[in-house]
Amino acid sequence: MSNKTSLLKVILLGDGGVGKSSIMNRYVTNKFDAHLFHTIGVEFLNKDLEVDGHQVTLQIWDTAGQERFRSLRTPFYRGSDCCLLTFSVDDNQSFLNLGNWKKEFIYYADVKEPEKFPFVVLGNKLDVSERQVSAEEARQWCQENGDHPYYETSAKDATNVAVAFEEAVRRVLAMDERADHLIPTDTVKLHRKPRSATTCCS
């Protein structure tokens, strides 16, 4: 049905230092820099990919994690198609804060049906040996908080990063299809923004 490229906006949220920028950079540029600057403000990168025959441009938004910068990042939540809740497996506090991040996102993104919105949870820094959060704990949280898919990632050695983003895309597309079934369709999908000609890809 669609040869058109859809633009999907996903946003990475989580405490400062859990590796949001590193995950994004690993995925988009396939590079890792352990000493990458912490993010000030908001940034985004684009990545083209194909998932189950759908051409998609992912627009990945990365934000500053510190509480103080909430006022800067929250206006950018609107229009997100998917939210990647990120913590670091070697930082229990960042795991405990997942719920707050989810709440903040739902509130400011003005999500109409939070229970249906696609969240994906990422437990990053799998490469670090001193874990503070077990996979079981994390899975349990995901199950209890809306049955979110959970991926343990390592931006450093590229484990599960692409898989997680692809899952995010699948979740969004599945949402769309469900919506499409409700409308008898010869119609063009209007709710999905066509990719803009002037989009600058990285």
């Binding site: 400062g16 230092g17 000493h35 990458l36 912490h38 506090q93």
Partner: peptide, 19 residues
């Protein structure tokens, strides 16, 4: 303290002085 530790490790690390 936790944030300072994290950020100090990601401030100007490509500069010789801090690498």
């Amino acid at each position: 303290k936790s944030l300072i530790e994290k950020d100090v490790n990601r401030t100007d690390r490509s500069n010789q002085f801090y690498e």
